[in-house]
Design a protein around this nucleic acid. Structure first.
Lengths: 335, 335
DNA sequence: CTGAAAGCGCTTACAG
DNA sequence: CTGAAAGCGCTTACAG
């Protein structure tokens, strides 16, 4: 493998001049630049990323910290990972995958080993233990999620409150006065899952304002349980015939249950939901829904993180991504 | 951040002695080792990965090259990525995500920039252009997929042929004499998707041996198209009432269509399928199926790649992972 | 068993 | 505008 010294010799210049054209930080006369570029092409030279990292103390890579929560359901995870990688590459960064049963160790190790220039934390909870080593070290990081206390760390997320409002409004506008609120497992709210809670609060409040009565339907974990819970809820004649869903597993299962019970949408039931974009690739999604915008979230997170790396002292940012309502004919008009 | 020099000073030894305990490559007396370890703990020292990489010319990271194919459907991708990361970490490696619309550039860049010690290529096709830069450079890599010509590169994959045989046998054993063979989009076979083709060949051959007549049902891309194709196939009275499915999108959609048509499994239709494990997390999977074993595949790939890095000249390996039949009561016994 | 020295491949002030 | 030198933080023969 050719080194910068080989290129310098081939072009008849010094190594620092080659470095100047590599980094683009200094002016080099067009003639010598051309000679150097020819040498680079001839030798198929390419800069050694590690050596550059050592010299600049910039690795030009970000770490993406992922952790699975049992109670969750993430067919969209791959979409997010690819979105992060693409967004990072556009800014010259690579992406390292940091998985670990205990996410805290992964975080500390990445920081201590200077493996990466910054961290992207997926799926951040209220009181998430991974925040501690970050805020203590002041290491550049961005949370995807919006805990009540971000501990001075940058954070980016979909605006779940506004998503809830859009969906409630959509139902209220169509004249609905009551709806089942199909929710995540209770443990998710208790664990401090910030998106679940933010959606819930905004939904309840807006529903009260708009005169929409919400009947909570908590859904436990596990496909079998989801199916049974939905079946029972749909069959109970006391329950509203309208569904507001914030639970991807329930969204995925609902069509099965509707099929079992011979129910049609929107004739028999009206449905709106918040679900990840990946679900829409799995089947014909016939429910009016708010998409979760993985690309926009990833780009915002990478943008915030790049700025943080360049300006470590600037004040922490919080960025909420506006959701987008995807209308399908899954809601009967009662107006 | 403390360096190895700080530790050496604190412990009153030379940097090379510290390095010896760090790498474990040399014997150090217990006493001085203890002093050094105390110094490391006190200073919260941790080795700088990049500097070590430069000195050893080992980055201790693998690149995972992912590419999306339009005709495919990968809710399981995240499962694979996490599995690779976990398997790599167990052997001291990190995992870098290499995404790119044009996967070839990503591969060449990673090799040239010595970003990684080895490459894991997902979703490898027959005649995959990404193989060229790898086999030309002799860079350590492992293919996940089994193209007819691996070009001397290590390869690992689920044994799709044996999966097909298990499923055909399962049907034949239950006395079935004919079945619809619900397939991937035709373009996938033409593109050289090796798993589609390997499954197909083995299925056809085994079916012939076992006296099972197979009626091919190609399924186009897109949820709407999948739904319509399945509906038409299920409604056609000329078609067998037994389904052998190798198409995740069709597996995902099938319950919807069955629901639409009011068909029950196994009363009205018998179903066996090969599908990714992730699908089983999405809903109650009631079909007898062969799981695609992401963890086993990932571990095998990482194992092969580690061996390759340590012994670049050893002969190329091909490893097929035995699939595992998951029996559910989705097949009527006609025997 | 421990240490001094060279080297990994870059970048970056600093002279000229 | 170009080059010589030092340095980034490690590891690894090589002496002792």
């Amino acid at each position: 493998m050719a080194t910068i010294g080989d290129v310098a010799r081939e072009a008849g210049v010094s190594r620092s001049t080659v470095s100047s054209v590599l980094t683009g930080r200094k002016f080099v006369t067009p003639e010598t630049r051309a000679r150097i570029e020819a040498a680079i092409a001839k030798l198929e030279y390419s800069v050694n990323t590690g050596a550059r990292a050592l010299a600049t103390s910039r690795t030009m890579t970000f770490g993406v910290v992922v952790r699975f929560h049992e109670a969750e359901f993430s067919p969209a995870l791959a979409t997010y990972l690819v979105a992060f990688s693409d967004a990072a590459r556009e800014r010259g960064y690579s992406v390292m995958l940091l998985t670990e049963p205990d996410g805290t160790a992964a975080v500390s190790r990445a920081i201590a080993g200077r493996l990466v220039d910054g961290l992207i934390l997926l799926n951040v909870l209220d009181g998430d233990p991974r925040l501690e080593p970050i805020s203590r070290s002041g290491f550049p990081a961005v949370l995807v999620g919006m805990p009540g206390d971000t501990r001075g760390i940058d954070a980016v997320d979909l605006d779940f409150a506004s998503a809830a409002i859009m969906l409630v409004d959509h139902l209220a506008d169509a004249g609905h006065r009551e709806a089942m609120f199909v929710r995540w497992p209770e443990e998710l709210y208790e664990n401090g899952s910030t998106y679940a809670t933010r959606f819930e609060r905004a939904a309840l409040r807006r529903a009260a304002d708009r005169g929409l009565r919400l009947v909570p339907v908590p859904v436990p974990v596990g496909p079998e349980e989801v199916r049974e819970t939905l079946r029972a809820a749909l069959q109970d004649p006391a329950n509203p015939k309208t569904l507001l869903i914030h639970n991807d597993a329930a969204v995925a299962m609902l069509p099965f249950v509707l099929g079992d019970l011979g129910l049609k949408v929107p004739a028999d039931r009206s449905v709106v939901s918040l679900h990840s974009a990946e679900l829409a690739r799995l089947y014909v999604l016939t429910f009016t829904a708010v998409e979760s915008e993985p690309t926009a979230v990833a780009e915002a997170a990478v943008d915030v993180l790049c700025k943080r790396v360049d300006a470590p002292q600037s004040p922490a940012q919080k960025r909420l991504i506006a959701p987008h309502l995807e209308r399908k004919s899954s809601v009967t008009s009662l107006a």
